[in-house]
């Protein structure tokens, strides 16, 4: 967040783009978190062990996604407060509900996508390049939707709260679609 300020060396610009920077930072952290999460698993062969233990791959998928979502949520809250302090954002009271819902839906979407592609890429040599290649285009809708919704919630550049709700709808549809798609696809993908 401090580095971003060096690149965009103007206070008004920073205030304008603060919500986008929060989500950009989250997105890059997602890649690191996913890689870390699956590196731990594959090092110990834990994924195989759970499969041998007869666990439903869907249960493994949702379990990993929930763990990832909790990590992401904590990170997002920290980033938001950093934005409040460093980028002079304010959180108006009427935007709190929108903000909370945005964080929840966007985080679920990110966690589902990350877990799915992380599981696919884990254990392969080129995973450091494969994971961003698969993940970043897939989470583009989340980046767009979450940024606009948070802009509305924080009132950045004159945005109003009511503008944010369609975006939350988009984020929710995305999360559900990838939750369902991911839980179906995860089994065949890790079952090798």
């Amino acid at each position: 967040m401090v580095i971003f300020a060096f690149a965009l060396d103007a206070d008004s610009v920073l205030e304008r783009v603060a919500p986008g920077l929060v989500w950009l930072a989250t997105m890059f952290s997602l890649l690191v978190l996913v890689q870390r999460a699956f590196a731990i698993e594959t090092d110990d062969g834990a994924l195989d062990a759970m499969r041998v233990a007869g666990l439903d791959p869907r249960a493994i998928y949702f379990g990993k996604a929930m763990a990832l979502a909790v990590e992401l949520l904590i990170l997002e809250v920290v980033l938001l407060f950093t934005a409040v302090i460093l980028y002079r954002q304010t959180i108006p009271l009427d935007g709190v509900a929108l903000l909370v819902l945005t964080l929840l839906t966007a985080t679920c979407g990110l966690a589902f996508v990350g877990t799915l592609y992380g599981g696919l890429a884990s254990g392969f040599k080129g995973r450091e390049t494969l994971l961003p290649l698969l993940t970043l285009p897939a989470v583009a809708p989340v980046l767009i939707g979450a940024t606009r919704a948070v802009e509305s919630a924080l009132g950045t550049a004159g945005a109003v709260v009511s503008d944010g709700w369609p975006w939350v709808g988009l984020l929710a549809v995305f999360a559900v679609a990838f939750g369902v798609g991911g839980s179906l696809a995860f089994g065949p993908l890790i079952d090798e």
């Binding site: 799915l116 285009p137 897939a138 583009a140 809708p141 767009i144 939707g145 369609p166 975006w167 988009l170 549809v173 995305f174 679609a177 990838f178 798609g181 696809a185």
Partner: peptide, 15 residues
């Protein structure tokens, strides 16, 4: 999955 993704991307970008 790409088939699932494309309409979502298209929808979000249009919005």
């Amino acid at each position: 999955l790409a088939v699932l993704l494309i309409p979502l991307v298209h929808w979000s970008v249009r919005l």
